[in-house]
Design a protein around this nucleic acid. Structure first.
Lengths: 358, 358
DNA sequence: CTGTTAGCGCTTTCAT
DNA sequence: ATGAAAGCGCTAACAG
């Protein structure tokens, strides 16, 4: 499976120089060295020069984590996610990294696959590393980590937490989320303005956590435009391609199938496209489809998928900023930030064909 | 852009309990407490029970990082990458996380976009946090981080490093990479066995870093099967969809265009599919196309893309294991691990159509 | 098996 | 503007 070869040498093992080495070489106290780096304004120019010269020649860099014992800050923030391989999470993580980096913070990312035990374990591990704050992503539809008790425990330790998305079991505290409801309203309204009247909802257990906003947006749009909610056009499925495929098949088997559908996410939408093609339908001529999330795949389908884009990078970036501001001022009031979604019209939406039109 | 609402309370701020609190409550020394957690085998059952009871009632957990000052180990490893949003990197990162977690290690991931300045900065920041080892991903085609000097500096600090992939400016030391050459040989051989004789190479600057193995594999396969290398069938491009589109157009404009092409990566392959369709060709009937990497998108194209899968997760996992073994035994010899690739036959390869056949 | 005694490298009053 | 001294929370000889 993996063949292994030997190749070359080993390391010299020179241990890094400390603040003592520098203070000795520069002929000043360790306090002065310390301050030269952390509060340079307090040190005279001449002294600073001596210090930096010494530091340079010794290749010295202050060790953040040694100071952490005293300062109680590691400049590390923990990001607890389901899976970094999920493109939404990856973009969010990058946003967190960048937002944190702006203030010399680094982030520790953990993937738990939503497993409650691992969540708690990893949380503890991060705490043991002294992370200054946490960003927690959903879905926490189980009362595990998302439980008020666990968050309270974190709070009582004085560790600030920012949550991502809407949680089922916790409502207070700081969090940042997308305006998915508004996004779904836009999506459905787009279909209606195209002339569609029978619009299906391919839900992935829409009544639960993440899908709630979309489900409400769907209903709201119908209401706004004076259309009735027809529950025969609403179907649940796994939030996967296969799930979308099956759900679409069911809708297509109806006596009066919908002329358009909105899917709970892009994968489900792709599954719906599969089912339509199999049935001999052309998208979007015979059936319009809208996804949700705008994952990278959405621009690669044939035709490319119309979808509602969330802004995971911005969400992560905002979350990082919120954590950092909490760190600066622990008395900051809890706040909820809601980021807009955007309808991205690509190739899977068009006016309904004649015989569908009423 | 983001509307903000206030929502609820703030934190109680109870500072966590220390080893002293526990030792006092349990009526033992701090060493005993310490050992109860780190070397439980050295402590009598009775004492341990007292300690754990006290720890539990105080909600005490040892702080890894406080101990790090003494032990010189933070149980943190640093992963320096180009961009966590790249699906290859994300899978690799997940592999690192999982591999590290098996030994209670956590990882700090940084994205540099390949910017040399940020690489060095972030490297220093991670070092300041006391990371025990580094995993560095390519491409380091610039002599920046990839320079022997920088790696030597890391080595001299006694910080072990594992590199991912083949680097241009460094050849020794431990690294893990894919057998891309062998993978490409498989891909081209597959086309040849299908009956193709004129096989194009859509290279993204194939002569450079990451593409080298593929380019060599392409040549090797031709040679194995007694075909001549025809440089008119070889073209360079940006390693993007647009790049692949342009490169394919050039090949298609040839008097005798190829009946099949291998692309340097999946994005380039998708671009090639775009160009073929535009030209009125059907893939794979008129033109066979093979990508490289097997990014998620590859299964979503129409038809789904035949490609060579690398194993980024395994690469990351292996890299983590290598770092950890180096940490256990610093005298471990440098080693190179090469992970196999796998040809994934999907829908873009078929025998050549009649008039292409010689 | 357990306690004593020093620190790890840095920051931080408190003086000067 | 700078130094002395104490200590952050934990571990690690070294004794016993």
């Amino acid at each position: 499976m993996a063949d292994i070869k030997k190749a070359g040498g080993k390391a010299p093992q020179t241990s890094a120089s400390t603040i003592y080495d520098v203070s000795r070489l520069a002929g000043v106290s360790t306090s002065t060295v310390s301050r030269s780096f952390s509060r340079p304004d307090l040190i005279s120019k001449a002294t600073k020069e001596k210090v930096f010269a010494a530091a340079k020649s010794l290749n010295y860099r202050p060790s953040t984590f040694a100071g952490s014992l005293t300062t109680k800050r590691t400049f590390l923030i923990g990001l607890l996610t389901t899976d970094i391989q999920n493109p939404f999470v990856a973009a969010l993580a990058r946003g967190v990294q960048d937002g944190a980096a702006e203030q010399r913070y680094l982030s520790i990312i953990c993937s738990t696959d939503g497993d409650a035990t691992r969540e708690l374990d990893l949380l503890e591990e991060m705490l043991a590393r002294g992370v200054d704050g946490f960003i927690l992503t959903p879905p926490y539809d189980t009362p595990s980590l998302g439980s008020a008790e666990n968050l309270a425990a974190l709070n009582s330790r004085g560790v600030p937490v920012v949550r991502i998305g809407r949680w089922k079991y916790v409502t207070d505290g700081t969090y940042v989320t997308s305006c998915t409801q508004e996004g779904e309203v836009d999506a459905v309204s787009h279909l209606i303005s195209l002339g569609h009247r029978r619009i299906g909802f391919l839900g992935g257990y829409y009544s639960r956590g993440v899908g709630l906003g979309r489900w409400q947006g769907y209903q709201e749009a119908l209401e706004i435009h004076g259309l009735n909610l027809d529950m025969s056009l609403v179907t649940e499925s796994e939030t996967t391609r296969a799930g979308g495929y099956g759900a679409m098949q069911r809708l297509l088997a109806l006596a009066e199938p919908p002329s358009a559908v909105v899917a709970i996410n892009d994968l489900v939408a792709v599954g719906a496209m599969d089912a339509s093609k199999e049935r001999g339908l052309t998208v979007p001529a015979d059936l319009s489809i809208i996804g949700f999330d705008d994952i990278p795949v959405a621009s690669f389908t044939t035709p490319p998928l119309t979808t509602v884009a969330q802004r995971p990078y911005d969400i992560g970036h905002t979350a990082a900023e919120l954590i950092l501001s909490k760190l600066k001022n622990p008395d900051t009031l809890a706040q909820m930030v809601r980021l807009s979604c955007q309808l991205v019209v690509r190739g899977t939406t068009a006016p309904p064909s004649k015989h569908d039109d009423k």
